[in-house]
């Protein structure tokens, strides 16, 4: 777990998540979103996407993992998040989440982090900026 002073502008991380049926169905259950564009093969085959699309807000759930586990990790809370869902993703895709610290504000212990997500190593599907507040100081 890093405290505020140990976090540096330019700190980076990345990790991958495989989108399988289980994750897709679990998110449907948690969110309560039963839209046919996500769950009905016949319906979604007639849309411009041609098949069921993944849940946009499933992507933001990976930001929870990002902030809580990797960057900065540990005792931080997200206080603001901007999210741009650029392109769809699908069951079976591998999503790579990349993030970097681009600003720190000492007086409020805010850390600003930009994030991008790519499907199958190539296509950028998400861009976001978030602010997390680091609560933990080792000398407190």
């Amino acid at each position: 777990m890093k405290n505020f002073s140990e976090i540096k502008v330019g700190d980076k991380t990345e990790f991958e998540v495989q989108i399988d049926e289980s994750i897709h169905k679990n998110f449907s259950s948690i969110s309560g979103d039963k839209s046919p564009i996500h769950l009905d093969d016949d319906f979604s085959s007639k849309t411009k996407f041609g098949k069921k699309i993944g849940y946009a807000f499933l992507l933001t759930s990976f930001l929870s993992r990002l902030y809580g586990e990797y960057l900065p990790g540990g005792s931080s809370i997200c206080v603001k998040q901007e999210s741009n869902f650029i392109k769809p993703f699908f069951i079976g895709d591998t999503i790579k989440i990349k993030a970097e610290v681009f600003n720190k504000i000492e007086s409020t212990k805010f850390v600003e982090i930009k994030s991008e997500m790519y499907r199958n190593q190539e296509e950028c599907i998400f861009k976001g900026k978030g602010i997390v507040q680091v609560l933990f100081e080792k000398n407190e």
Partner: peptide
């Protein structure tokens, strides 16, 4: 209040102390 402090710091290029906040 915290959002305001951080936006002022970023946009005006100044830094507050915790006491000032």
């Amino acid at each position: 209040h915290l959002m305001l402090v951080s936006e002022i710091e970023k946009n005006l290029g100044i830094k507050f102390t915790i006491e000032e906040v």
